[in-house]
Design a protein around this nucleic acid. Sequence first.
DNA 1: AGAATGACAGGAA
DNA 2: GTTCCTGCCATTC
Length: 119
Amino acid sequence: MLTRMMKSADTPLTAEQRIVAAIRAVPRGQPTSYGAVARRAGLPGRARLVARILAHSEGAHLPWHRILRSDGRIAFPEGSEAYLEQCQRLRAEGVDVRNGRVRLLQDEESLDSAVWAPR
DNA sequence: AGAATGACAGGAA
DNA sequence: GTTCCTGCCATTC
């Protein structure tokens, strides 16, 4: 009682904390979208908040490179420093990046469904 | 307070 | 498959 109040108690996580957690949960080699991260964090419609948090969280060691636009395209201007860095990091995880774009999985689509029902 | 901006999304064309 | 256009949300001018 007293002890649990002193620690972190039940302070509801802030929107930012939930989003950061959702970002950390994105598996290697399985990129997702800003909007999907927001939904998983329980904040539908706040894709732009996800983007803003990433932009301001340099040094937080987040897998920022796994977050793309809903259409699978890299969000940075083509050819920019960050763009190239993102391509290379994704490829390093085995992701097929073609022309600055990847194939995103649907929300309920798991990795093995993608493996066993490729298209 | 109103306008502009941004690592966006989804549907229309 | 595209690109284009409008809506969104939060912050900054």
